[in-house]
């Protein structure tokens, strides 16, 4: 079985040593690197593509959150912090596991256990977005529609949406082609969410999504979409 690749990020050497020590009793993991600040970490993440980050929140110049926001694809994350839980809540992070330093072994074991459960549903590319003071992990699988709005891309997922400061063209290049399709100048759809495709008079196509959205494909994209659906 492939080993879980881990990157440890903390500005204090002894704090990193501490994590390494805790990881010693886990044979199926591999520590692929250590980083002492966000910039250093980003470089290593881009090259080494770790599966899991142990990430300190308070670091010089850029915080752990800043780091995650800068990533195109966010690996699994376990936050480590010396703040108490109320202080962590103040960051308004939802659904993120965090360990409080000093870390108890049984708590660490629990975090690793939960991770195994999560990584069973693998192949889950996701991003980390701050929207209106709230941080979200957003899995691309769950994004059914992306709309362009001025300089922002609006991502629709579940019954929520967030704004991402990027142009649709830039975003399109980063997206998985087998998953997303640009139907027109202003909209990108998730192919997994297509319910029905209705031909319109004049050759254009209207796409009905399972969510009820009904974007209309442009002339050029209708042609492409027809090919795509056939294959």
């Amino acid at each position: 079985m492939k080993k879980l690749k881990i990157l440890i990020i903390d500005d204090e050497r002894n704090a990193r040593e501490e994590i390494k020590l805790l990881l010693k009793s886990y044979p199926d993991v591999e520590i692929i690197g250590e980083a002492k600040n966000a910039d250093d970490a980003k470089e290593q993440i881009d090259i080494k593509k770790p599966d899991l980050l142990f990430l300190d929140i308070q670091m010089p110049e850029k915080t752990g959150f800043d780091l995650l926001e800068s990533l195109d694809n966010v690996p699994q994350v376990i936050f480590t912090t010396a703040y108490d839980q109320y202080a962590v809540k103040a960051f308004e992070v939802s659904a993120i596991d965090y360990l409080m330093k000093p870390i108890r072994e049984e708590r660490f074991a629990k975090a690793m256990e939960q991770l195994k459960v999560k990584s069973a549903s693998k192949n889950d590319d996701r991003i980390f977005v701050k929207d209106r003071q709230q941080y979200h992990f957003i899995s691309w699988n769950k994004v059914h529609l992306i709309e362009s709005l001025d300089n922002y891309a609006r991502l629709f997922f579940d019954d929520k949406s967030v704004f991402l400061k990027t142009s649709l063209n830039l975003l399109e290049q980063k997206l998985d082609e087998s998953l997303f399709f640009r139907v027109n100048r202003a909209q990108i759809i998730n192919l997994n969410y297509i319910d029905k495709i209705i031909p319109l008079p004049g050759g254009k196509l209207k796409v009905l999504l399972k969510t009820g959205d009904a974007p209309e494909a442009s002339d050029r994209q209708s042609v492409k979409l027809k090919k795509l659906v056939k294959t």
């Binding site: 204090e12 002894n14 704090a15 501490e18 020590l21 010396a82 703040y83 202080a87 330093k101 000093p102």
Partner: peptide, 15 residues
């Protein structure tokens, strides 16, 4: 200060 105290303790734990 929780931050100072716990970081110190964590540091000592490693040391």
């Amino acid at each position: 200060n929780p931050h100072f105290l716990f970081n110190s303790l964590n540091n000592i734990k490693a040391l």
